[in-house]
Design a protein around this nucleic acid. Sequence first.
DNA 1: CGACCAATTGACAACGCTGTCATTTATGGC
DNA 2: GCCATAAATGACAGCGTTGTCAATTGGTCG
Lengths: 347, 347
Amino acid sequence: MSAGARPTIADVARLAGVSIKTVSRVANNEPNVRDGTRKKVLEVIADLNYLPNPSARSLASRRSFLIGLLYDNPSASYLVNIQDGALKTSRATGYDLIIHPCVYKDPNLTTELQMMIAQSKVDGLVLTPPLSDMDSVVNLLDELGMPFVRVAPADRSDTGRAIYTNDSETCAEMTAYLHSLGHEDIAFIIGHPDHGAVAQRFDGYQAGMKKCGLTVRKDFIAQGYNSFESGVDCAKQLLSLKRPPTAIFASNDDMAAGVIKEAHDRGLAIPGDLSVAGFDDIPLASYLWPALTTVRQPIQQMAASAAELLLTKLGARDDGEIESVVKSELVIRESTGPDLRVSGHVN
Amino acid sequence: MSAGARPTIADVARLAGVSIKTVSRVANNEPNVRDGTRKKVLEVIADLNYLPNPSARSLASRRSFLIGLLYDNPSASYLVNIQDGALKTSRATGYDLIIHPCVYKDPNLTTELQMMIAQSKVDGLVLTPPLSDMDSVVNLLDELGMPFVRVAPADRSDTGRAIYTNDSETCAEMTAYLHSLGHEDIAFIIGHPDHGAVAQRFDGYQAGMKKCGLTVRKDFIAQGYNSFESGVDCAKQLLSLKRPPTAIFASNDDMAAGVIKEAHDRGLAIPGDLSVAGFDDIPLASYLWPALTTVRQPIQQMAASAAELLLTKLGARDDGEIESVVKSELVIRESTGPDLRVSGHVN
DNA sequence: CGACCAATTGACAACGCTGTCATTTATGGC
DNA sequence: GCCATAAATGACAGCGTTGTCAATTGGTCG
C-alpha cells in the first residue's frame, strides 16, 4: 500500500498536461486559472493523492504555515480548551500549531522568545494570559514584525488584535445573583495581579455590589493568586472574621475549590452556612461537593476566534467579521443558596 | 535591533573563510572537521547569531525535525503532563512538537492519520492511550515505516517501543494498604475497557486481594468508563448492595471523585463510613474533600522517556539506556481510613 | 624524500516548491 | 476580421540547506 515515493508537483503537472506553475496555482487556490484546467488538475491531484511538500513550500514562499501558542502553565483545563480551540481553526486552514510553554517571570523571556521565533519560524503567535498582558512581549513582537493576537488581555484598547470575554459584566451578574438569594455580606477573592483579566473580575464584583446598593467592605476582600492553596488561605482569613461573610465569590474555580475545602474543614455546610461561587467552569467545578456555581467562560471559542483573527491577518482566510468579545454565562449549581442567617430575606 | 535579513549559511562560510559544506558539518555536529576549523566556524556562527533555516534543512535532508503527539481527549491534566514531558526532551534535542487530537473510535482514523502524517511530515510519533493500544494504528505506522513509541500500552511485549508504569503492582499495593486498615469488603471500579492500562489495574486489585487472603466478590466489581459520571453510577450500584463495601478502589481519580460525590449525597462520611481510593493523582485529587488517597503516576516522565526513546530511534540522540518502566507510588491522603464497621480491626 | 592512506575540505547538484516576468491565448470593441 | 487589452499559462531562477563525490591536505612508513 505504501505506494513508493510520494508524488511531487512535477508528477501532477506531467499527468495533467500543464506546467508546474499551473498546478501550484491550483493547489494554492489562486485565481487566473481556467475552470477546465483547474478541474483537470484537481482530478490528477486527487488521483495521485498529491499533497504539497510543506518544507519546499515554506522554503520558497518564506512562510512556515505554523502558528505558535504561547502560554505560561495555566490550569490544565484552560490550556486544553485553548489548544482545542486554536487547533480547530488552524488545522482547518492548513496551519499546524506549535505549543510553547514559557515562564513569564523569566528575565530572559524576550531573548528566549526571540530564539524560539527564529528557530521554528512561526508565521504568527497566539498569546494567552498572563503573556497577553505583557508589554515587553507585545513590544518585542511588534519590533520583530511578528503578527500576533492576544487572548483575554486586560487592556482592551488594542482593538483588532485581541479577543476577550465580558468578565466584568458577568461578575456583576453573579454578585447580583448572590444578592438576590438574600446575601449582603458577600466577600470577594481577587485573582493573581499579573493575570489582568482575572484581576479585573474584581471590578465586576464592585460594580455589582454598587448596583445592588451594597457597600464593599474592605475586610471582605482577600487577595488570592489563582491557586487552590491561595483559595484556602483567603477562606481562612475571611471565615475568621468576627462577622464572616455569608457568601464568597472567588475569581476562579481553583480558589473557590479551596474555599469549599476550608469550609468543610471548619464544619460549615455549603450552601447552608456559606455560599461559594467561582469563575471558569473547569471540570472540577462539577466534581466538587457540592457542585460549584460558577461562570462558564467560552475559552475554546476565544482561542478559536483568536486563531481565526491571526490567520486572517496572515492572509490565510478571506472573511472578516470576527467577534472580538465572546460571552460568558452564569452556571448555577449547588454551592450557592439562600442566606439563612438573615431571616427576613428567606421564603 | 531587528538586524535586517537573517544570516544564511553562505554568510557564515564567507566570514569564516571556509566552504558552505564545512559550515553545514559544524552546524550539524558532524565529524571530520579539524578542531581549529570547527572553532573558527563556531565563532562566526555565534557572532552572526546564525540559525539554520528549518525549511531548507527539511527539504534537503528529508527530515522535518517535528514529532507528533497523538491523543484522544484524555483528562486535561494527563494531557498537559504528557505534553510537558514530551516537549521537554524534544525541545532539548532541537525538535518541535505537533499535537494531534484524534477520535479513536472514528472509523476513518487510519485514513485521517495517514493524511496528517503526509501533511505535516513528522519524523516520528508518540502514541498515548487509548491509541497506544490500537492494532490498526500500530500496523498502519509499521506499514508506513513511521517510527513511533507507545505510552502505557496494555501489551507489554512490544519491547523497545513502549514506556509504561507498574500499574498492576501498585494497585496490588493499594489493595493491601486498604486491607491493612482493616477493610475486607473492598470493591473495585474497573476502567474503560478500551484503555488497556487502566483496565489492567483490575489485575493488580485481584492479585492484591489474593495476596491478602481475601476473595474477590463479583458484586463488588463495577464496570466504569473512566469518567466522573461513570464513577457516580458505579458508586450507586455498589452502595445499594445490601451489604455494601467499606472501601471502594476506583481505577482512576475521576471515577473516585464520582464515588466521593455519591457518598456525600448519601450522607456517608468519608473515610468514616467509606474509604475511597483512586489512581493517577490528578490535581483534583488534592482539591476534593476529603483529599483523595491515590496513586501517583509519573506521566510526565513517561512522556519524556517516550520522546527520548523516539528521538534515539531517529538518531537525534546518542545514548541508550532509557528505562522502559517508570514507577508509580501510593499517595495516602484523607479519603482512606480504618474500617470502623469491623470492630476487631481497629485500634 | 616519495608513496600511500586517511582525514579534511569543497564543488555542485539536488530537494520540491513559489515568485517574477515573458509568452501565449482568449475577449471585446469597432 | 483585426487590434488592443486582459486573462491564462509557462520558463526559469531562486529559496537555504544537505548528500555525493571528487579534490586537497596532512601524516606515516619504508
